[in-house]
Design a protein around this nucleic acid. Structure first.
Length: 748
DNA sequence: AACGCTTTAGTGTAGACAGCATGTC
DNA sequence: CTACACTAAAGCGTT
C-alpha cells in the first residue's frame, strides 16, 4: 500500500517525504486502527500526512470515505481544489461540503469529503446515511478544540466519532503545551516535531536594530537597521524597507482593524518600487475600486495604500477585496500587508518577514495578552519555500515594553489547551442535539457521554459541568424543546406543578428520561442556539399579539402592517446570539435609535436594546435598496461586516420561517413578511421587485431596470417581450422567456 | 499670531461556523 | 464590560 501511495504522490511532484512525514509513517500511520496526534509547525507538510492517511483507506476500499475537517470555509475550498486536481484522475471522488455550498445533494458516492466541524455536526444531526461508510477522519488544526467559541463543537464531534463510529482519527495540531494529554484522550500515538522547510529566525525588533534570538533565549545576532527617511515616520518603516529592498515581503500583525489600516497608511514604498511594479499596482488599485459601483470609504483607502505597495487585510473587507490583496501579495506585487489575525489562520500567505506589532488585545472589556500560540502562528508565516533563504519572525517592541519579557514569546513552552465544553452557548446546543439523536436518553447516558469528553479527561470531576447541564436541561424542558419522564413512565412537555416558592416538585433526578419534541428537533436541525430559538418563538408570539390587538384597537395607527412586521422580524433575529457581535452605538446615534424604537412600539431597556434596533435598521435599509456606500456611511460599518450580517440574517430568517411553520400561529401578515424577507435579504431589494426576482436570470439590477420601465411581473414580461429585449438584450430576454415557458408559470 | 509641545477628554475595540435550494452583474 | 491606545482638542509657553 505504501508503494502505491508513494507512487501517486510522486506523480504529483512529491519525490521525497519530509522528515516529519517519514517519522509518522514509521510510527504506523498506515495502521487503520491507530489514532494519531501530530504536532508539527505550519507549512511543514501537515496536509500531506492527512492525504496519505486518506489515500491509505480509499485505495484499499473504494466504498470507504475519508473526511478532512478544516476550520475555515476558505481553507476548505482551497483544499478541495487542490485535492480534486491531484486525486480525481485516480478515480477518487472529492467533495466539498460547507455551509453555503454542497457538491451534491447526496454525498453518497464520494471518497474524500472536505468539510468543517460545524457542517459535519449538522450532517450528523440530519442523520445522513453515508456516515457509516466513513473509516477515517483527519482533523486539521485540532488544537482549536481549546477555542472558546468553536472548540466545544469540535470536542463533541470528536467524542461522538470516538465512541459511536469506528474510525481512525488523525489530528493535526500546531505546537501546544500539553500534546500528551490530548493524545491520551484521543487514544492516539503522539508525534511531535519542529522541522520546518524554511529556517525561521526569531527576533525582537527595535527602532534601529533587530536582536535575533536562539532557542535558549540568548541573543545570537544583532542586526542594525539602516535609517530610511520617511515623512510619515512609521515606527516600522525601517524594519519594512530593509526587507523589501532585499526582495522580501512583510506581514504586520495588528490587534485591531483600525491599527492595521493606520499602519498601512503610514507606510509609503513608492520610491523603492520600479516603474513596472507601480504600473501593476495601479491596475490592482483600479480593480479594488471597481468592486462596488460607488467605492466605499474603505475601498478608497485600500486603493490608495495599494498604490504605494502596501495593503491592509481584515474582516471589514469583502471576500473579493481579500482575494485581490492575497493574490497580489503572493505574486509579490504588494510588498506589505498590515493585517489582523485573519491572515494567521487563513489561507496560505507566506512572507519573508512577519512582524508582530501588538502583544495585547481588547477582549470582553479588557485588554488581555494574546496567547503565545497565536503569536507563534503569526510568526510561523515567515519563510516562503523556494523564495527565501530563511524566514524572520519579529516581535516589535516600543518604549514601554522590555526586551526580556518579549523573549518569552519566542522561546520556551507554549500554553496548554483546555476543553471549552462548559461554554454555555455551545453546550446548550449540543445537549439538545444529543437528545434529538437519542445519544442521550436518560441521566445515565448523559453522564456517560460527558465522561468520555476531553473535559472529563482533563478535569476529572464532572459535577461542575453536570450542574450547568442540569440548568440547560431545565431550560430546554421549560422551553418545551424536550419532554421529561421523572420516573413514572410518562413524558411531560411541561414542568411539574410548582409549589408556593416556585420550586418544581419532581421525582428522583437519576431516574429522569429525556425525549425530543418536534420543536426541539427542528431547532437542533436548524443549527441555531436553543436560546435563540426561544427568543424567536417568544418574539413571534409577541408580534402576533400586537397585530391581533391592532385589529381591535388600531393602535398601530398608520403603519403598513406588512412593513411593520418585516421590520419586527429583522429586530427579532437581531436579538439572537447568532447575530453577535452587534454594531456599536455612538453617543450621537442614541436618540435616533431610541426614537425609532418608540415609534415602532418596541421596548428599550438599555443600550443593548438599542443595538438590536440599529442592527435591524441596517438590514431594513439593505432590503429597501439603500445603496451600499450610503448604508455603510450612515451606520458607520464596513462592507465585510455588512455582508456577514446579511449572510447571518438570511439563515436566521429561514430558521424563523421554519419555526413559525411549527408554531400554531396563523397570521397572514407574518407569513407574508417572512416569505418576502427570504428573497429581499438575499438580493437586497425592496418588495416591489420580488415578483421579478423570483424569475431565474433576474437579479437586483435587472429587476430594477425592468420595474422602472413599467414591467413589474411575469405577465408584463410576456406582454411586453420586445421591451424586455431592448432593456436586457436579446440573449438574456430569450433565456428568461424560455425559463418562464418551461417552468409552467404561464398558462397560455 | 503662528508654532510646537503637553495634557486631557472622548472614542472605539479580531475573527467567522451553521439551513436550504439553485444560478446575480 | 475590571483596560488600553489612539486622536482631536484644549492648554500653555515661546518666538
Amino acid at each position: 500500500m505504501l508503494q502505491k501511495i508513494l507512487k501517486i504522490l510522486e506523480e504529483n511532484g512529491i519525490k521525497e517525504l519530509r522528515p516529519p512525514q517519514k517519522k509518522v509513517l514509521e510510527k504506523g500511520l498506515l495502521d487503520k486502527k491507530k489514532n494519531f496526534l501530530i504536532s508539527i509547525p505550519t507549512a511543514s507538510g501537515k496536509t500531506l500526512i492527512g492525504e496519505i492517511t486518506l489515500l491509505n483507506h480509499i485505495l484499499e476500499d473504494r466504498n470507504k470515505k475519508g473526511l478532512f475537517i478544516v476550520p475555515l470555509k476558505a481553507l476548505a475550498s482551497e483544499k478541495y481544489e487542490e485535492f480534486k486536481k491531484k486525486y480525481e484522475k485516480y478515480g477518487i471522488k472529492v467533495a466539498l461540503s460547507i455551509g453555503d455550498y454542497d457538491e451534491e445533494e447526496n454525498l453518497e458516492g464520494y471518497n474524500i469529503i472536505i468539510t468543517t466541524a460545524e457542517k459535519l455536526d449538522s450532517l450528523i444531526r440530519h442523520k445522513v446515511k453515508w456516515i457509516k461508510d466513513v473509516s477515517v477522519v483527519v482533523i486539521d488544526e485540532i488544537h482549536l478544540i481549546g477555542d472558546v467559541e468553536r472548540g466545544g463543537t469540535l470536542e463533541v464531534l470528536i467524542t461522538k466519532l470516538k465512541s459511536k463510529y469506528n474510525v481512525q482519527i488523525v489530528g493535526l495540531s500546531a505546537t501546544i503545551g500539553n500534546p500528551e494529554e490530548l493524545a491520551r484522550w484521543l487514544e492516539a500515538e503522539l508525534v511531535v516535531d519542529d522541522w520546518r522547510p524554511v529556517k525561521l529566525k526569531k527576533g525582537v525588533g527595535y527602532k534601529d536594530k533587530i536582536l535575533f534570538i536562539g532557542e535558549d533565549g540568548e541573543v545570537v545576532e544583532e542586526y542594525p537597521l539602516k535609517i530610511y527617511n520617511n515623512s510619515r515616520r512609521s515606527e516600522l518603516f525601517n524594519l519594512v524597507v530593509d526587507c523589501v529592498l532585499d526582495g522580501g515581503s512583510v506581514l504586520i500583525f495588528c490587534n485591531s482593524k483600525k491599527s492595521a489600516v493606520n499602519e498601512s497608511r503610514k507606510l509609503d514604498l513608492k520610491k523603492y518600487l520600479s516603474r513596472e511594479e507601480l504600473k501593476e499596482l495601479k491596475r490592482i488599485k483600479e480593480e479594488i475600486l471597481s468592486i462596488f459601483d460607488k467605492p466605499t470609504e474603505i475601498c478608497k483607502t485600500l486603493a490608495e495604500c495599494v498604490g504605494r505597495g502596501v495593503a491592509f487585510h481584515h474582516a471589514g473587507l469583502t471576500y473579493e477585496h481579500r482575494r485581490i490583496v492575497e493574490g497580489a501579495f503572493r505574486r509579490r506585487i504588494i510588498k506589505v500587508i498590515c493585517c489582523t489575525p485573519t491572515l494567521s489562520m487563513g489561507v496560505n500567505v507566506p512572507c519573508r518577514r512577519a512582524i508582530v506589532k501588538d502583544l495585547k488585545r481588547y477582549w470582553k472589556g479588557k485588554t488581555v495578552p494574546i496567547p503565545k500560540m497565536e503569536i507563534l502562528q503569526c510568526i510561523g508565516r515567515a519563510g516562503r519555500p523556494n523564495l527565501d533563504p530563511y524566514g524572520e519572525g519579529i516581535i516589535y517592541v516600543n518604549e514601554r515594553m522590555n526586551v526580556k519579557d518579549v523573549k518569552d514569546y519566542l522561546v520556551g513552552p507554549v500554553e496548554s489547551i483546555y476543553s471549552k465544553l462548559s461554554y454555555p452557548r455551545i453546550l446548550r446546543s449540543h445537549i439538545l442535539s444529543l437528545i434529538a439523536l437519542e445519544d442521550v436518553k436518560d441521566r445515565e447516558s448523559l453522564e456517560n457521554f460527558i465522561r468520555s469528553t476531553l473535559y472529563a479527561h482533563q478535569y476529572g470531576n464532572i459535577s461542575k459541568i453536570l450542574e450547568d447541564i442540569e440548568e440547560i436541561i431545565r431550560f430546554l424542558e421549560f422551553s418545551r424543546f424536550i419532554s421529561v419522564d421523572y420516573g413514572d413512565g410518562r413524558y411531560r412537555v411541561k414542568m411539574l406543578t410548582l409549589d408556593g416558592n416556585g420550586i418544581s416538585i419532581r421525582g428522583d433526578k437519576d431516574k429522569e428520561k429525556y425525549k425530543i419534541t418536534p420543536l426541539g428537533r427542528r431547532i437542533s436541525e436548524l443549527y441555531i442556539d436553543p436560546l435563540s430559538g426561544k427568543v424567536i418563538i417568544g418574539e413571534l408570539k409577541k408580534l402576533n399579539k400586537k397585530l391581533r390587538m391592532n385589529e381591535k384597537t388600531g393602535y398601530l395607527g398608520n403603519w403598513d402592517l406588512l412593513d411593520y412586521s418585516t421590520f419586527y422580524i429583522l429586530y427579532l433575529i437581531s436579538k439572537t446570539s447568532e447575530m453577535l457581535p452587534l454594531p456599536w452605538i455612538r453617543s450621537c446615534e442614541e436618540n435616533f435609535f431610541f426614537y425609532e424604537a418608540v415609534r415602532r412600539d418596541i421596548d428599550i431597556d438599555d443600550i443593548e436594546s438599542l443595538k438590536y434596533i440599529k442592527n435591524a435598521m441596517i438590514l431594513y435599509d439593505w432590503i429597501n435598496e439603500v445603496p451600499e456606500d450610503e448604508l455603510l456611511e450612515k451606520y458607520n460599518i464596513e462592507p465585510g461586516i455588512l455582508r456577514y450580517k446579511v449572510e447571518q440574517a438570511k439563515w436566521l430568517v429561514y430558521a424563523t420561517g421554519e419555526l413559525y411553520k411549527i408554531l400554531n400561529i396563523k397570521n397572514r401578515v407574518i407569513s407574508q413578511a417572512l416569505e418576502g424577507l427570504k428573497i429581499r435579504i438575499e438580493y437586497g431589494a425592496s418588495k416591489e421587485l420580488i415578483d421579478l426576482l423570483k424569475i431565474k436570470h433576474i437579479g437586483r439590477t435587472r429587476a430594477r431596470k425592468l420595474y422602472n420601465a413599467g414591467i413589474k411581473n411575469i405577465q408584463d414580461i410576456v406582454d411586453n417581450y420586445q421591451k424586455v429585449r431592448s432593456i436586457l438584450g436579446d440573449k438574456i430576454a430569450k433565456k428568461i422567456l424560455q425559463e418562464l415557458m418551461s417552468s409552467d408559470v404561464i398558462t397560455e
